[in-house]
């Protein structure tokens, strides 16, 4: 019987000061081997200084079909942006 290796999502921190960013996935039996595989597949040219792997099955994603309901309310709250407020021209540094 053929063993199926679980899927892991891979995140790379390009350099300190930046956050980890999703780059793709690898198959591996466990977390340590997933890190090894991620190193070989996604950082052959100094693309990173740190790796995260996590089981793909552990990710819960929002439903694109509900994107409007989830994100639309932000559109009618323009008062959250600084440009909503009118400040006279002669007032500086604000």
């Amino acid at each position: 019987m053929t063993a199926i290796l679980p899927l892991w999502e891979v995140f790379v921190r390009a350099k300190n000061g930046l956050s980890h960013r999703h780059v793709g996935s690898v198959h591996a039996a466990d977390a340590r081997m997933a890190i090894q595989a991620a190193r070989d597949v996604y950082t052959r040219r100094m693309e990173g200084v740190s790796l995260w792997v996590l089981p793909s099955a552990a990710i819960t994603a929002s439903d694109p079909g509900e994107a409007d309901a989830l994100f639309a309310p932000a559109a009618d709250k323009v008062y959250r942006h600084p440009t909503f407020y009118v400040v006279p021209d002669n007032v500086k540094h604000i």
Binding site: I4, A28, A29
Partner: peptide, 12 residues
């Protein structure tokens, strides 16, 4: 190389 995948899974 099937045995390698099987061994890795068994170990995990």
């Amino acid at each position: 190389q099937a045995w390698v995948r099987e061994a890795a899974n068994a170990y995990a």
